[in-house]
Design a protein around this nucleic acid. Sequence first.
DNA 1: CTCCTTTACTTAAACGTTTAAGTAAGTACT
DNA 2: AGTACTTACTTAAACGTTTAAGTAAAGGAG
Lengths: 338, 338
Amino acid sequence: MVQKKRPTLYDVAKQANVSIATVSNVLNNKDEASEETIQRVNEVIKQIGYSRNESARSLKRGESKLIGLIVPDNNPFFTEILDGIQQECEYYDWQVVVANSEESEKRQNQLIELLSAQQVSGIILAPVSETLSTTKIKANAPIVLIDREVENVKLPVIKADNVDGCYKATRKLLQNGHKRIGLILASPGISTTVQRKQGYVEALTSQNIQIDEELIQFGGNNTGTKAQIDGGYQAVIRMMNLSSPPTAIFATNHLLMIGALKAIKEQNLSIPKDISFIGFDDHPWQEISSPKLTIVSQPAFEMGRQAIHALHKLKSKDEIITTSLPLKLVIRESCGTA
Amino acid sequence: MVQKKRPTLYDVAKQANVSIATVSNVLNNKDEASEETIQRVNEVIKQIGYSRNESARSLKRGESKLIGLIVPDNNPFFTEILDGIQQECEYYDWQVVVANSEESEKRQNQLIELLSAQQVSGIILAPVSETLSTTKIKANAPIVLIDREVENVKLPVIKADNVDGCYKATRKLLQNGHKRIGLILASPGISTTVQRKQGYVEALTSQNIQIDEELIQFGGNNTGTKAQIDGGYQAVIRMMNLSSPPTAIFATNHLLMIGALKAIKEQNLSIPKDISFIGFDDHPWQEISSPKLTIVSQPAFEMGRQAIHALHKLKSKDEIITTSLPLKLVIRESCGTA
DNA sequence: CTCCTTTACTTAAACGTTTAAGTAAGTACT
DNA sequence: AGTACTTACTTAAACGTTTAAGTAAAGGAG
């Protein structure tokens, strides 16, 4: 694979009869060259097809034009976040390196290292654990947390208002007369789980309904699409086997929801006649599901955008922005009355 | 944002009482140091937490440990490809920069430039147009095409066997007695569209059935999820308004399929009783759709893996690998008899 | 006319690696 | 003992930028 050598500042400088410093100044709009020279240099650049060697620049500057994104998996929620990040990065002329921690803290910390070694300008991190080892947050790039928070760590975080979103969903079911509402949660160790449970609990207690721990099932101790779906499936099976099964179910993430719906279908229960249902995350296929599902919808794209925004503020003004974006309850056809 | 300066080779060298060259050799397993020195250097590295400045290395080597992935959008198919790419990159110690061309050739070529400037070791490209401008394939990084091919370009390409896959799907419908089969295609300008149409045409002509161009509808001239879904929707509407509407429909990508199903539902047609249906791409939610859909399934993850493999072969042996992976027809419940 | 400032540059060092070339000591062979 | 090879290093240059410091010429103020 023979690759032509890319032209350098020297090539441009020679052709334009100036020093490399001048070319560099022109490239960086330093306004220290005459209009005429700027013109000439730019012409040569275009003519010989010069573009900057970013490795050299990064070396000198101590910072590349890359930002890192670390997600625990590539599910559609994080893909939508990536979308938002990419759009916003365009403005800052950043490129995104995506890495997958696979819900492993060890891997996550390796990735922070690897990205730091690339001299990334910043890292957007959806952390896997509740506690980020303090050694690691000294990574040599600024970090913004997304989706999930960690305790005792002073970092910007862009998250959804899980408590409120799940409060609203649960209240909706309560308003429809449900008293026994099954809650399906993901892994206990992450902040979103804690907060989603909290919203559920607050809604019930505000109506003086006792919490029945049997109705709260964790379905996401394992990683991987299949495992998560199965977690949701098993959670429903367990609930429906209770002496007094729920009349409504709230699944608090997308994969859990799919598994839950599968179990409901297999049990020959019809939504919303036999059981009411609220799911999580809106996706195109829901337009054709029947019944159309009432869901809690997350502003994933916007979260991505805001994360970049927060990263920029952190870098330029040392400002720590923490944003909690509202969750929307999209009411469709899956909630009946008890 | 005060960042501690990262330790360099010098820091390691000083502490270990050797020259930076020796440290470098140890780091790169050059086997030119005594066992004792290797030990000592490695200890110092761990102790002071040294890790290589990849910008400096890239500058010297003329190549970074990054590879670029350019996709036309972030739909789940490409996300699964990314998954495969990431898994395989682990082995080569590469990281992935993902960029979105938004189906724009201009943007795509900009991105090739930008990635080249990052000194990427290679680029995996799902090209937007049938013809890649020849100037551009001279990018200073080796390129492997994925999913789509372009004419007259000698590059490795990892694709699905679209002709065969769509032949099989169409034949299935023919075997079930359907004679008027509606085909919904994406944008005419990409190779996958051409090939999927070809598979359909071959299946029909092998049964001596005349092609009715009215039954071949393009739904994907526009970019964006909504637009694609709408394209599938409109395609069905147009078909069903024909004097002699189809008795079966084959939608050749995921978003088109969702739109098509939406239209079918709105027309109060029931699958497979009133109309038979074959879709594209398998995703978790299909487990809970009713009826369960017969679909053509793409090995996206494997395509990602193979792309990295092909890239490596291209770089190390200058070998141009072209792979056409089989498409699988997953038969479920959406095909009835005519 | 002299001095000062501004403009439009140039020079050269530095960023942190890799690597070719050099070296000094030890071992092996004749 | 002399030569040749091996081992285990070191030295120094180079990769392509950015940028602080320097400079020469022109313009303006007094």
